[in-house]
Amino acid sequence: MDILINVFVALHVIGIASLLGGFLTQMKAIGAGTARFTPAMLHGALTMLVTGVALVGLHQAEGHTVNNIKIGIKLAILVVILGIVYVKRDEETADKALFGAVGGLTMANIFIATLWT
């Protein structure tokens, strides 16, 4: 079971990298007002959602305690990210504030995951 958990952790990190990478590669475009939400950002967020739910289930199946408040906050942040990216994915350009919010919320999710013990 540990191998399966590690595989899902790796997939979760790949999802985070896709979402954050899509944001970071367009930092210059944000200033120019031409940034847009890419399919990689949507797919990364969806990957994070699916693998995160699987990880919670696998940890509970192993008998480990899960911090439900932490998971709930991370899930709420991810749902907001998914909502923004999904709704705005077909627009030619994204509003600077929304694009910045997605980047900030993604980084907040990373910090919550790593610093909240």
Rank of each mutant, 00 (worst) to 15 (best):
V87R: 14
V56A: 12
A17K: 06
L46C: 08
G44P: 01
G33T: 01
A40L: 13
A61F: 00
I81P: 14
L49N: 08
V85H: 06
A45V: 02
I3E: 15
F111Q: 01
A113E: 10
E62F: 02
F99G: 10
G52P: 01
A29M: 15
D95I: 05
G33K: 09
I84H: 05
H43F: 09
F37Q: 11
Q60F: 11
L19Q: 00
N6M: 12
K96W: 12
Q26K: 07
L20N: 06
I14Q: 06
H59K: 11
R89F: 06
G22Y: 03
G63W: 00
A54Y: 01
L58H: 06
F23S: 10
A94F: 01
A97Y: 03
G83Q: 12
T47A: 07
T34H: 05
G44L: 11
V66P: 03
I77M: 13
I73P: 10
A97F: 03
N68E: 05
R89T: 08
A17I: 01
E62M: 04
I73E: 14
R36P: 12
W116C: 02
L115S: 03
V7W: 04
T114Q: 03
L4M: 11
A54T: 03
L46F: 05
T117R: 15
I69D: 11
V85L: 07
N68T: 02
L11F: 06
L19H: 03
G57R: 11
G52E: 02
K74W: 08
G31V: 00
I81K: 11
I110V: 14
I16M: 12
I30T: 01
T117Y: 15
N109C: 00
N67R: 13
A76R: 07
M107Q: 04
R89V: 03
A35Q: 09
H59A: 14
M27E: 12
L98C: 02
Q60V: 03
A29G: 14
M27S: 14
A45K: 00
F37D: 07
T117V: 13
A101V: 10
N109A: 01
